[in-house]
Design a protein around this nucleic acid. Structure first.
Lengths: 346, 346
DNA sequence: CTGAAAGCGCTAACAT
DNA sequence: ATGTTAGCGCTTTCAG
């Protein structure tokens, strides 16, 4: 029912006004980068450009896309917006896209396969040139199908078998977390993590558990409740009701979950870090502000690389997955010698 | 350089395969809701539908949009991703959009006028049917220009003069915050708020200051550092260096800023809430987890209404701005009797 | 019930 | 240096 109201000026109008054919108008208006004088006399060029400016002409992206089979558009599929790590990744993607005159179309899938399929095809219906998925699920075949359709895409943040993507070195993250807690003298360990379908939580947890085993400590309790504040709360409630067993060190594979857990611990009178040390992941500003130890990766760079790899793929190059390094940021939640409140974020 | 690879099946292919004209194919495939039998013999209908399914046919949205001048697409302009309130608003918008078979195209503007203009026109180039802005600036003329172009849009979260939008009752928010702090016996008050161009912070602060004046207390200190964790930190550092004046109650117009401030206060050895009470805004999960008092609005409903009003506008109805009610959630950061950690989020 | 034809706005051979 | 022509994939009169 709606109408984009205003009928926008077309090349035809410019052509009529200047007294040339639309072909000439098209050529001139496309020659921004290359020298427009190559295509028409200086006089015509000037007249066309003047008319375009006067009318406020803008190319109709639908018509161009239909004609050229290229939309200069990249679809970005996120599990959700609203978390800081995702925002940083998207910022990186956007940055590179802009550098290459590409537009990003962002949408969310809620980690729901149906929604993801629907929205992916909705983007393909719009002839996106390529896709970036930040919401891969380990055991799904969807990405294989897309690849079979010869649709260019890269992954970011979460891995999926052989598909090319840029992630953090999540195995290193798990190892660093375990080492840090063990070195702080913690022996009864737990981990709060994502459902298994996320490679991030899966790998962090796997490496963590392995490192704890290497150290000869008891197997950590693994709670797969999720990666948000509420998930952290739930996990903490389960830990509090440990039936005799009491943890004194917890790795949450996400800062929000860590904060949720800390809230519960404090409510029950446990001191952090004295009674229980907690380390999160992603080094969000909130972690810095609340003195939460965390693991840090350059997420904006992660987004940039995912976009750059997609561009390489467009260019026909062979591309390979990359893993970005992870570093440890020690704050008060694992080390009582650190200040309680803010540690300046980098 | 890229290619959407796969040449997708077209109506022409279906027509050829079935032995009818593309016109018939188009009619049948468009008649999903209405009875397709109205347009063709049951036999033809079945054959066309079978062929479409077999080939995996999907309509080319660019072609449809070009032909019909309607894209079934709504552009959503956000200041940024990564914060919980925005995510909830978008969820509401998406929900209604989906109910009406509309696709949302989400992008960010970073509160940067240049980027906002660029990306708005980029959406218009794609023939979006309408726009929703969550990033209005109070003293800008951009929205007036758009209205002059007869482009349908609504605002959400932030107001802008006469343009129709859905916001929280931010004046009530400021009043509630002031009352709460005053009733808790706080007399030296401050407020951490957004730059003036955001109606949210502006109105919350205005009402807060007025209420404090009504109560006969000293004028609150106003810090316009922003609405993220870092802004809260900066504001707190300024407050700590108050040159003789010491606040004991702070309203931060955003939960993240509140957390940033609390981090600094605790680092300097101030107890929250004993030495200084802090109340935030948006009632995020993190606020619940960390025991931060806050002001709550149904942000998803806000997004829903903004989208619904846009639909009304499409339908030619007169639409009016709406303000959603705000309620107070008292937690430990303003009331020592509340538990330190988590209060269950609603 | 179905087809032919025109055209949305643009680009890209191919002419001249 | 510029125009003519064809057509991307689809919808929509208008005929029959």
């Amino acid at each position: 029912m709606p109408i984009n109201g205003n009928q926008r000026p077309t090349q035809r109008q410019i052509a009529a006004q200047v007294g040339v054919s639309v072909a000439t108008v098209s050529r001139i208006l496309n020659a921004q980068e290359t020298k427009p004088e190559r295509w028409a006399s200086p006089k015509t060029v000037a007249a066309i450009q003047a008319a375009a400016a006067e009318l406020g002409y803008r190319r109709n992206a639908l018509a161009v896309g239909l004609r050229t089979q290229r939309s200069h558009t990249i679809g970005v599929l996120l599990a959700g917006l609203g978390d800081d790590p995702t925002a940083r990744i998207v910022a990186g993607i956007d940055e590179v896209a802009r550098e290459h005159n590409l537009t990003t179309l962002v949408t969310t899938t809620d980690d729901n396969p149906t929604l993801r399929t629907e929205r992916t095809f909705s983007m393909l219906d719009r002839s996106v040139d390529g896709l970036i998925f930040a919401d891969a699920h380990l055991e799904e075949s969807f990405l294989d199908q897309l690849q079979a359709l010869n649709i260019p895409f890269t992954l970011v943040q979460r891995r999926h078998r052989h598909h090319v993507g840029v992630t953090a070195d999540d195995l290193m993250a798990g190892t660093l977390a375990a080492d840090h807690l063990i070195n702080s003298g913690r022996q009864q360990l737990a981990v709060i993590t994502a459902p298994r379908y996320m490679s991030t939580g899966y790998e962090r947890t796997k490496a963590y558990v392995e490192r704890v085993a290497q150290a000869g400590l008891a197997e950590p309790r693994v709670l797969e409740t999720g990666v948000d504040v509420e998930a952290g709360r739930q996990a903490a409630l389960i830990l509090l009701d440990g039936q005799g067993w009491t943890p004194n060190g917890v790795f949450a594979t996400d800062d929000s979950a860590a904060l949720g857990a800390i809230g519960v611990f404090r409510q029950r009178g446990w001191r952090v870090p004295e009674d229980i040390a907690v380390i999160g992941c992603h080094d969000t500003p909130t972690a810095a502000a609340t003195g939460l130890s965390s693991l840090s990766t350059d997420l904006k760079a992660m987004g940039r690389r995912a976009m750059e790899l997609l561009l390489d793929r467009f260019a026909g190059l062979e591309i390979e997955s990359e893993r970005l390094p992870v570093s440890l940021r020690v704050r008060h939640s694992t080390d009582p010698n650190q200040p309680i409140g803010t540690t300046r974020a980098e």
